[in-house]
Computed example of a mutant assay.
Amino acid sequence: MTYASPVSQSGSLRHWLADPHPTSPFQARMHQSWRMWRKLRRNGSALLGLAILFVIVIAAVFAPLLSTHDLFAQDLGNRLSLPSAEHWFGTDELGRDIYSRLLYGARITLYIAALTAVISAPVGLVVGAVSGYFGGWIDTVLMRVTEVFLAFPSLILALAFVSALGPGINNAIIAISLTAWPPIARLARAETMIIRRSDYISVVRLQGASALRIITRHVMPMCVPSVIARVTLNMASIILSAAGLGFLGLGAQPPSPEWGAMLSSARQFILSNGFVAAAPGMAILLTSIAFNLVGDGLRDVLDPRHD
């Protein structure tokens, strides 16, 4: 006797995923993921953003294979050369290949953006959930602290923190993270204030669940979809802040191929050799636009009102 999987019984994987009556928790999760993918697939701008991000991630991961020159090799006799078959994006003021440096610079930019998101998202989620659930003086204290951070432009505040900590990539990540969590906290607080009045939260509370358990097991998971969409939208500002710090010499230090640092060294040649600054500038622009497009798509997909 042979065993027939749910996929073969339904006739196709697509039919099994789209089954409106899932028979197991696994199928329910797959069904929800399938519905989200179908909604995202109908969003052309989100798919465009995903495609751009995919290309950037592939370029960063396989930079050693895709690069054509040593990113640190200098050739002063071939400095500021125009794009050619040998140097696809030309060379900079020290004769270094711009294309190869862009590939490795994508690694630094994605590293800063990812690590900043990993740090700021949990902090903002916890602060917002605790503030929104307890209310009272706890909410007042936490929100006043949050508003102090929101009172300053993010780049100015990041400049202040990184000036105190010292230049460098790791200090730049810490400084940007300290400016990125307040909007997430405000969003999580608003979501929590709605969720805490739900009937199922009242039932869980009547069953004797502690406040810590309610927040971690019931409130925070409900806030995660909105936080994910918000963090994705914040990626563009994180990348711009990282590039701004690098441009001012407070982020990645030379000879690191960080895009902001590349712009800083190329700014004196913008009028005479604009291609030197155009390459890292376009890389920052495309990456920021891609994250914004994906964030808009995720916001629509994760919002139940858009079913």
Score class of each variant (00 low, 15 high):
1 M>E: 13
2 T>C: 09
8 S>L: 13
9 Q>A: 08
10 S>H: 10
15 H>M: 08
15 H>R: 13
16 W>E: 10
19 D>R: 06
20 P>M: 11
21 H>W: 12
23 T>V: 06
24 S>F: 04
28 A>H: 05
29 R>N: 12
29 R>Y: 15
29 R>T: 12
30 M>T: 09
34 W>I: 02
35 R>G: 10
36 M>P: 03
37 W>L: 14
39 K>E: 11
40 L>C: 07
41 R>I: 14
41 R>G: 15
41 R>S: 15
42 R>W: 04
44 G>T: 10
47 L>M: 14
47 L>D: 01
48 L>F: 14
49 G>E: 03
50 L>A: 14
51 A>N: 06
55 V>N: 01
56 I>E: 10
61 V>C: 09
64 P>F: 08
66 L>E: 07
72 F>C: 03
75 D>R: 15
79 R>H: 01
80 L>M: 10
80 L>N: 04
82 L>W: 15
83 P>V: 13
87 H>N: 14
87 H>P: 07
87 H>W: 05
88 W>F: 06
90 G>Q: 00
90 G>S: 01
93 E>F: 05
93 E>I: 05
95 G>S: 04
96 R>D: 00
97 D>H: 00
103 L>N: 00
104 Y>A: 07
105 G>W: 06
108 I>A: 06
109 T>N: 13
110 L>H: 10
112 I>H: 08
112 I>C: 07
113 A>P: 03
126 V>R: 05
127 V>P: 02
128 G>H: 00
130 V>W: 09
135 G>H: 07
136 G>P: 12
142 L>A: 06
148 V>C: 02
150 L>E: 07
151 A>H: 07
153 P>W: 13
155 L>R: 07
161 F>L: 13
169 I>Q: 05
170 N>I: 06
173 I>F: 10
176 I>G: 02
182 P>D: 01
186 R>H: 01
188 A>I: 01
194 I>S: 13
195 I>W: 02
201 I>C: 07
202 S>T: 08
209 A>L: 09
210 S>Y: 08
211 A>H: 12
211 A>L: 10
213 R>G: 00
217 R>V: 02
220 M>E: 05
221 P>K: 15
224 V>D: 10
227 V>I: 15
229 A>L: 02
229 A>Y: 04
235 M>S: 08
237 S>W: 11
237 S>M: 09
241 S>N: 10
245 L>I: 02
248 L>S: 12
249 G>T: 01
250 L>S: 01
250 L>C: 00
250 L>E: 00
251 G>Q: 02
258 E>A: 12
260 G>W: 11
264 S>A: 06
265 S>Y: 07
265 S>R: 10
265 S>F: 02
265 S>A: 08
268 Q>L: 07
270 I>V: 09
272 S>W: 12
273 N>A: 09
276 V>H: 08
282 M>F: 14
283 A>D: 00
284 I>F: 09
288 S>T: 09
289 I>K: 06
292 N>W: 13
296 D>F: 07
297 G>I: 04
298 L>S: 03
299 R>V: 01
300 D>K: 08
301 V>S: 10
304 P>W: 13
306 H>R: 08
